[in-house]
Simulated assay, not measured.
Amino acid sequence: RAYPENSSPDLQCSHCDIPLFKDPPARTTAPSLLDSTRPKPDSKPRPVLQGPYLPLSTQLVEFLNREGNEAACESYLTRKRVPGKMSDIQDGEICQTLKGPDGRKFFDTAADRPNPDELRIGLSNAHLGFSFTRTNDAGTHSTGAASFCVTGLPAHKRYRPRNLLLTHLGPGPHEETCDQFQRTMASTVTELLMLYDKGIVAETPKFPNGK
């Protein structure tokens, strides 16, 4: 299960009844005058396990404001296809037949499309597990990274690290099981549905007032 970091400190997992937060360390000495000059420990409860998460909508705005990305994502509007030739992911069946929330083609290039200024972005998801070793004597720690690439970018830029949208890292110390991965991806899937159904308004170089 995945829970927000501002959950109640006494919250327990709804599946296994394990506390989500560690107990605060107990004081072993009596208070002294020096305590008033020492930095106070963070009173915020510490989760037993935690992993970073960054919403796609936040990253997409930053992505579109990088030089050249907005124009690259608009290229599907003017790109000429050769029937029967597959030269880009946009030529695939999914991109060509996927319906939008309005019932029209998601990547609609028709001149009479309802909102000609709307930019529709395709995303492709990948999840990669990896591990690292601190020293030869220390145990290994495994985690997994969930990221998205923007399919509208040219192929040679699509998988560059700076162009990938990293949504979350697994907390470890072992790679997530299929069930655990589904739980941690739930927030991302919910956001994807929101982006598909409603979209967001983003200020970009071409549309400084938002599009």
Rank of each mutant, 00 (worst) to 15 (best):
E74A: 02
S75A: 06
S75H: 08
Y76L: 07
Y76R: 07
L77M: 11
T78V: 10
T78W: 00
R79Q: 04
R79G: 11
K80Q: 13
R81P: 01
V82G: 01
P83K: 15
P83F: 13
G84Q: 11
G84R: 11
G84H: 11
K85P: 13
S87N: 12
I89W: 15
Q90D: 02
D91L: 05
G92N: 11
G92M: 03
G92C: 10
I94C: 09
C95W: 04
C95G: 06
Q96W: 07
T97N: 14
T97G: 05
L98T: 14
L98N: 03
K99D: 15
K99N: 14
K99Q: 15
G100L: 07
G103Y: 03
R104D: 05
R104N: 04
K105E: 09
K105F: 01
F106G: 01
F106Q: 03
T109G: 03
A111T: 04
D112Q: 02
D112A: 00
D112E: 07
N115L: 00
P116W: 10
D117L: 06
E118I: 03
E118L: 08
I121P: 02
I121V: 15
L123G: 08
L123T: 14
N125R: 04
N125I: 01
A126R: 05
H127T: 15
H127I: 13
L128H: 11
L128P: 05
L128Y: 14
G129L: 02
S131N: 06
F132N: 10
T133V: 09
R134A: 12
R134T: 08
R134E: 13
